[in-house]
């Protein structure tokens, strides 16, 4: 049976956005299906595993609300990551206000990062997981966007408000740090 919706994996994000703006609800469904897991992985890399679903949901709500401002010269997924980062920071800020605790800026502190705690039986993977916990938040974000999402450094720079060169350095420092820690753990 043929696809009656006219939406396939070949349909571009820009075309889906146009269809959604014209009132096609299936286009929104396709966009969410296509990108929700990527956004979730990024949110986890930001250290927010416990609130992943809530934050991913907020990201899409905010994105669809502001979709008129989306410029098609950048990728929709990159734009979603930018919004996700903002959503996470906003949530942290409101939580800090509630707790009335003053903290250092995120980029300057190595937070406790237990998002990757899971039942991982493989010893080598356990070593990698522990090594990743030692990365700075910025290194983790760059590493995740590069490895699991395949973003080029220019787009990572857009998401994190940095330069492509700096992101490349962060990525290689992250890989080097993971390598060193795994090597140390193996000795």
């Amino acid at each position: 049976m043929g696809d009656t919706t006219g939406i396939t994996s070949e349909t571009t994000d820009a075309a889906l956005i146009t269809r959604w703006l014209a009132g096609d609800q299936r286009a929104a469904s396709a966009l969410v299906d296509r990108h929700a897991t990527s956004v979730a992985r990024f949110v986890v890399s930001l250290g927010e595993r416990d609130r992943t679903e809530e934050l991913v949901q907020d990201t899409f709500v905010r994105a669809f609300r502001a979709i008129g401002t989306f410029r098609s010269d950048s990728l929709f997924r990159t734009w979603l990551f930018t919004i996700a980062k903002r959503v996470v920071l906003d949530h942290r800020q409101s939580e800090r206000r509630r707790r009335e605790v003053v903290e250092l800026q995120d980029d300057h502190v190595v937070t406790s990062y237990d998002a990757l705690d899971g039942v991982i039986g493989d010893e080598r993977m356990q070593q990698v997981r522990v090594a990743m916990q030692g990365l700075t938040p910025l290194q983790r974000e760059v590493f995740t966007l590069r490895v699991t999402e395949g973003l080029p450094y220019e787009e990572i720079a857009q998401v994190l408000g940095s330069s492509a060169g700096a992101c490349r350095v962060h990525y290689h420092n992250a890989v080097k740090a993971i390598k060193e820690r795994v090597t140390d753990a193996s000795v």
């Binding site: 929104a28 897991t37 899409f60 080598r124």
Partner: peptide, 24 residues
Amino acid sequence: LIAHAGEVIARATPSIATTRILAA
């Protein structure tokens, strides 16, 4: 190491209910 790291992140990511996102 990169392959293991990708696997670690994937396993740590909870599944997302897209229907709830669409409802929101």
